[in-house]
Design a protein around this nucleic acid. Structure first.
Lengths: 412, 412
DNA sequence: CATTAATTTGTGGAAATCCACAAAATGATA
DNA sequence: TATCATTTTGTGGATTTCCACAAATTAATG
């Protein structure tokens, strides 16, 4: 094998040609990916590749389970923190053979990776050095793609915000724009919003973007950020159980953010699942409603992400408006509140928890740390003082909603 | 028809002559009233007038029920706020044909009205302009009368309608009027509405009036009728149990009407109980809401008269609006409805009755004429098919409300 | 501080609910 | 018509709830 000072000096028409060159020099299959593990180029003269590489080439991106393994096992973190080649042991569970990888850098940012599969021999020190040089040489080629994508992204982002704010009126106009920007369409979709505890740094944003681009649980159509919110237009993979798919995706996203980046306390919500694009604004608003309600009623609905699962809290904004106009007086609640204040009792809270627990005496007593008979006594008093019939579901539900509504109002 | 610059330039000996002049120009019957709808003058050359006009001329005042209709329908408010002619669609219930009216102004005060009946043709733009000129020309003549009668009290019924339609803005103004008309005031009050099955005859109206005047269960402040409704402004005798007092009064009123006059099937409702008179309009609307809800949900709330006792049905109008905008999708309900339709089952109804009966298994089973175990089985199926947790009160309440709301929508 | 009312906890038995299982009835389908 | 899945009804026993009563504790008041 000959070693020039710079074996990649020449001009290459395409990255494919470049990949083939590396492959020739190292005598092993080469794959080049962008920062989001999308396939950019691969060498063609190879007679053996492992299942992971095959799948990557077929789907033009690295399979999610492979990415996950590489994260867990530490390869990707290493590549993101060092400019030196990294050897990756084989991971048979995901069909990944032993390989060496190096990251492609532009200033302080990773913009891609080169992978060299060790088919029949381990790469030597010199080979590793060569690979490192290759990464440097690939920089400009990859950068061009990167730049192009960035420019396109900006246009797309603006378009997305138009959708979110309802500034494109007709379905056709939207569909045309989707086509023009080569955004895939989907029969069903919803807006997902992730809300972080703090405003995101450039760094975190990149990591989130990475996670989203590489997920395969849902189909990501569009994506943008707004201060501490990450907003997605996402489609379920199948039309069968969209709610569950979204929920799974959200859960796993939160888990990954925690595991990989130690970012926890992410709140999330998604709006209604629609089939017409003019509903995007509505879905976005509903997603925001979910987040708002989670903030106000963390105990009741922390495990809920979908607008539909909000249940009665869906219409609390509406009710609050009316309530503040002086409608919906509830003298039962007023009497109970008065009594509570005067006698330092907790009748209102007792009823609230009682109803929260599906009117189950034992559970409620446990939750309140009181004897079941005490609860029975209190319920009797609630009926007397509030002059309500605790077997009349209408009265009960109204009182419950009014209690929650009062809480909601107080937190406003 | 000739159009002078001012066709009313000449001097008229009387307003009758003036009315005839307008009638000649517009080729339609003309009536001139003062601000209190007392007849001042009318044209004589007409061969057709509608019942409302006939009655007005005979009694020298516009019949109460006609005034009431005009308030409710918005014609009088429009005339009081604009100097332009207003077209009033015919109101057949009170024998009022289509007409155009214009108000007569002195500075910022309305001192009278001119009515032009559209007997066989609609008035043109030019005719309307002419009418407006006539109103200006009539000012001085009417003013003379107005001055003479200025001190005379406004008629009570019209005042009541102003209150009911929210056309008196300030509390003080209302209080002054109460004093001026020697209507007693009360610290608390509400609007009660009785709705009869048919429009009331003069005879029945007299009997009702008698019953109301002589009751001592509540204090009757004001009283009017509107087609088949009797509308009261009533105050409780004591501030202690106003709700109960109203309920008792309503029950006993219904009983008496039945016993003495064999009139049954009276629906009744009363609005919120307030202490400021500016809430009269609100209380009236709430009373009407009670009646509307009783009509739609007779089984649930037939024994309820007060708005507060409506419970969750208070906000059904609000929710329906949102529902029709495509919010509040409930996939659980959709699945259950689908299943019911496909398999001729009654899962939705089962859940509805179950929740109606406070989730009591035995009672529900009895109500549905099924074995308690059958109910248990159905509930299990409801949980499975609707994918809901029957111990999650939020999901249950939401499903219940959505079922009732769907019923409400269907009845609309 | 004594008294009284209101609240909490404890006990036990009647009533109900819940649950598992089985048998019977019904309905759809081929 | 036979077959299979679904639905309804029945039975019995473990568990829970409901209710009445009583004792103990706490709070409020003069």
């Amino acid at each position: 094998m000959m070693h020039y000072d710079d074996p990649f000096r020449g001009n290459f028409d395409s990255l494919e040609e470049f990949a083939d060159r590396i492959s020739d020099l190292l005598q092993c299959p080469i794959t080049i990916e962008d920062a989001n593990h999308r396939l950019i180029a691969y060498s063609a003269h190879d007679d053996y590749t492992d299942p992971a590489r095959t799948a990557t080439i077929i789907s033009r991106r690295v399979p999610e389970k492979v990415i996950n393994s590489l994260w867990k096992q530490g390869a990707i973190p290493a590549l993101l923190s060092s400019r030196d080649p990294v050897r990756v042991a084989s991971i048979s569970e995901v069909g990944l053979g032993s390989r060496v990888a190096v990251s492609i850098w532009k200033n302080d940012e990773v913009i891609g990776f080169i992978w060299a599969l060790e088919t029949d021999r381990a790469l030597s020190k010199e080979d590793m050095e060569l690979l490192k040089k290759a990464a440097k040489a690939a920089k400009n080629k990859v950068l061009q793609l990167h730049m192009r994508k960035n420019k396109k992204e900006e246009r797309v982002q603006e378009f997305f915000w138009k959708l979110l704010t309802g500034h494109i009126a007709t379905e056709e106009e939207i569909k045309e724009s989707f086509k023009a920007m080569q955004i895939p369409t989907a029969p069903l979709f919803s807006i997902i919003v992730f809300r972080f505890a703090n405003e995101m740094t450039r760094e975190i944003e990149k990591q989130i973007s990475y996670l989203l681009q590489t997920t395969q649980q849902i189909q990501l159509l569009l994506y943008t950020t707004d201060q501490s919110d990450v907003i997605l237009l996402a489609a379920p993979k199948t039309a069968n159980q969209p709610l569950q798919e979204f929920n799974c995706f959200i859960e796993s996203f939160a888990t990954k953010m925690k595991e990989r980046f130690h970012i926890s306390s992410i709140q999330s919500g998604f709006g209604g699942i629609y089939e017409t694009y003019t509903c995007i604004e509505k879905s976005y608003k509903q997603a925001l409603t979910v987040l708002k309600m989670k903030e106000k009623f963390p105990a009741q609905i922390h495990s809920v992400h979908g607008y539909e699962q909000l249940g009665i809290y869906q219409f609390f904004d509406l009710l609050l408006q009316k309530k503040q106009q002086g409608e919906f007086a509830n003298s039962a609640l007023r009497k109970l509140q008065l009594y509570d204040e005067k006698h330092h009792t907790d009748l209102v809270e007792t009823f609230e928890i009682f109803f929260d627990r599906d009117c189950n005496v034992n559970e409620t007593a446990k939750a309140l740390n009181i004897h079941p008979n005490t609860l029975a006594y209190r319920l009797k008093r609630i009926a007397e003082i509030g002059e309500i019939d605790l077997h009349d579901i209408n009265q009960k539900v109204k009182l419950y909603i009014d209690i929650k509504l009062a809480k909601y109002e107080a937190l406003h």
